[in-house]
Protein backbone atom coordinates (compact mmCIF):
# COMPACT_ATOMS: atom_id res chain seq x y z
CA UNK A 1 0.00 0.00 0.00
CA UNK A 2 1.17 3.56 -0.68
CA UNK A 3 1.41 5.83 2.36
CA UNK A 4 1.95 9.59 2.59
CA UNK A 5 2.42 11.41 5.87
CA UNK A 6 1.59 14.94 6.97
CA UNK A 7 3.63 16.15 9.93
CA UNK A 8 2.21 19.23 11.65
CA UNK A 9 3.95 18.97 15.02
CA UNK A 10 7.25 20.39 16.23
CA UNK A 11 10.38 18.16 16.35
CA UNK A 12 11.00 19.02 20.00
CA UNK A 13 8.70 19.90 22.88
CA UNK A 14 5.93 17.51 21.87
CA UNK A 15 5.82 13.87 20.79
CA UNK A 16 4.12 14.22 17.39
CA UNK A 17 7.18 14.20 15.15
CA UNK A 18 8.78 11.29 17.03
CA UNK A 19 5.55 9.30 16.61
CA UNK A 20 5.57 10.22 12.92
CA UNK A 21 9.15 9.02 12.50
CA UNK A 22 8.43 5.70 14.23
CA UNK A 23 5.33 5.26 12.06
CA UNK A 24 7.42 5.95 8.93
CA UNK A 25 9.92 3.27 9.99
CA UNK A 26 7.09 0.78 10.54
CA UNK A 27 5.47 1.57 7.16
CA UNK A 28 8.75 0.73 5.45
CA UNK A 29 9.48 -2.31 7.64
CA UNK A 30 6.06 -3.74 6.77
CA UNK A 31 6.90 -3.57 3.06
CA UNK A 32 4.65 -0.66 2.17
CA UNK A 33 5.77 2.27 0.07
CA UNK A 34 6.21 5.67 1.69
CA UNK A 35 5.63 8.11 -1.19
CA UNK A 36 6.65 11.14 0.83
CA UNK A 37 6.39 13.20 4.00
CA UNK A 38 4.98 16.73 3.92
CA UNK A 39 5.84 19.09 6.77
CA UNK A 40 3.37 21.87 7.57
CA UNK A 41 2.61 24.27 10.43
CA UNK A 42 5.00 23.57 13.37
CA UNK A 43 6.11 20.47 11.46
CA UNK A 44 8.23 22.69 9.20
CA UNK A 45 10.67 23.03 12.13
CA UNK A 46 11.73 19.43 11.39
CA UNK A 47 13.75 20.89 8.51
CA UNK A 48 15.83 23.16 10.76
CA UNK A 49 19.40 21.87 10.46
CA UNK A 50 20.46 24.04 13.40
CA UNK A 51 18.58 21.91 15.92
CA UNK A 52 21.21 20.85 18.44
CA UNK A 53 19.97 18.25 20.92
CA UNK A 54 22.35 16.84 23.56
CA UNK A 55 24.71 14.08 22.34
CA UNK A 56 22.71 11.29 24.03
CA UNK A 57 19.37 12.43 22.57
CA UNK A 58 17.79 11.59 19.21
CA UNK A 59 18.41 14.17 16.49
CA UNK A 60 15.14 13.88 14.60
CA UNK A 61 16.26 16.16 11.75
CA UNK A 62 19.20 13.86 11.01
CA UNK A 63 17.07 10.75 11.54
CA UNK A 64 14.51 11.90 8.94
CA UNK A 65 17.32 12.75 6.51
CA UNK A 66 18.91 9.30 6.89
CA UNK A 67 15.62 7.41 6.54
CA UNK A 68 14.63 9.43 3.46
CA UNK A 69 17.97 8.88 1.77
CA UNK A 70 17.96 5.15 2.54
CA UNK A 71 14.45 4.61 1.23
CA UNK A 72 14.19 7.23 -1.50
CA UNK A 73 11.23 9.32 -0.36
CA UNK A 74 11.01 13.11 -0.27
CA UNK A 75 10.94 15.42 2.76
CA UNK A 76 8.85 18.33 1.51
CA UNK A 77 8.52 21.41 3.67
CA UNK A 78 5.81 24.00 3.01
CA UNK A 79 7.72 27.11 2.00
CA UNK A 80 5.31 29.76 3.35
CA UNK A 81 4.83 28.00 6.71
CA UNK A 82 8.61 27.43 6.96
CA UNK A 83 9.65 31.01 6.18
CA UNK A 84 7.27 32.35 8.83
CA UNK A 85 9.04 30.09 11.35
CA UNK A 86 12.58 30.91 10.27
CA UNK A 87 13.28 27.76 8.29
CA UNK A 88 15.02 29.04 5.15
CA UNK A 89 17.00 27.54 2.26
CA UNK A 90 19.81 29.24 0.33
CA UNK A 91 17.70 30.76 -2.49
CA UNK A 92 15.08 32.12 -0.06
CA UNK A 93 17.84 33.57 2.16
CA UNK A 94 19.26 35.35 -0.86
CA UNK A 95 15.84 36.62 -1.94
CA UNK A 96 15.06 37.99 1.53
CA UNK A 97 18.64 39.25 1.96
CA UNK A 98 19.23 37.12 5.05
CA UNK A 99 22.76 36.35 6.21
CA UNK A 100 22.02 32.69 6.97
CA UNK A 101 19.98 29.72 5.90
CA UNK A 102 19.30 26.55 7.88
CA UNK A 103 17.31 24.02 5.84
CA UNK A 104 18.94 20.61 6.26
CA UNK A 105 19.49 18.37 3.21
CA UNK A 106 17.58 16.51 1.80
CA UNK A 107 14.58 18.53 3.07
CA UNK A 108 13.19 20.72 0.28
CA UNK A 109 11.00 23.81 0.44
CA UNK A 110 7.94 23.31 -1.76
CA UNK A 111 4.47 24.75 -2.16
CA UNK A 112 1.24 23.34 -0.79
CA UNK A 113 0.69 21.91 -4.28
CA UNK A 114 3.16 19.19 -3.28
CA UNK A 115 0.79 18.15 -0.46
CA UNK A 116 -1.94 17.82 -3.10
CA UNK A 117 0.37 15.69 -5.27
CA UNK A 118 1.22 13.38 -2.37
CA UNK A 119 -2.44 13.19 -1.43
CA UNK A 120 -3.30 12.10 -4.98
CA UNK A 121 -0.42 9.60 -5.11
CA UNK A 122 -1.17 7.66 -1.91
CA UNK A 123 -3.71 5.14 -0.64
CA UNK A 124 -3.44 6.37 2.95
CA UNK A 125 -2.59 9.81 4.33
CA UNK A 126 -1.75 9.88 8.04
CA UNK A 127 -1.31 13.11 10.00
CA UNK A 128 0.92 13.55 13.05
Amino acid sequence: MKFAMLVTSSPYGEQGSSSAYQFAEAVIAEGHQLVGVFFYQQGTLNGNGLLTPAADEVNLVQAWAKLAEQHGFGLDVCVSAALRRGVVDAPEAERAQLSHYNLAAPFALTGLGQLAELSAACDRLVQF
Binding site: Q22, F23, A26, V126
Partner: peptide, 18 residues
Protein backbone atom coordinates in the same frame (compact mmCIF):
# COMPACT_ATOMS: atom_id res chain seq x y z
CA UNK B 1 -0.62 -2.99 19.27
CA UNK B 2 2.89 -1.83 18.33
CA UNK B 3 3.77 0.54 15.47
CA UNK B 4 3.47 -2.34 12.99
CA UNK B 5 -0.05 -2.93 14.30
CA UNK B 6 -0.70 0.80 13.91
CA UNK B 7 0.29 0.55 10.22
CA UNK B 8 -1.94 -2.48 9.82
CA UNK B 9 -4.90 -0.62 11.38
CA UNK B 10 -4.32 2.22 8.87
CA UNK B 11 -4.50 -0.30 6.04
CA UNK B 12 -7.71 -1.87 7.32
CA UNK B 13 -9.61 1.41 7.77
CA UNK B 14 -10.51 3.75 4.92
CA UNK B 15 -9.07 6.95 6.45
CA UNK B 16 -7.76 8.31 9.73
CA UNK B 17 -8.33 11.45 11.78
CA UNK B 18 -5.53 12.63 14.01
Amino acid sequence: VDYKGFVSLSCHTSASIS
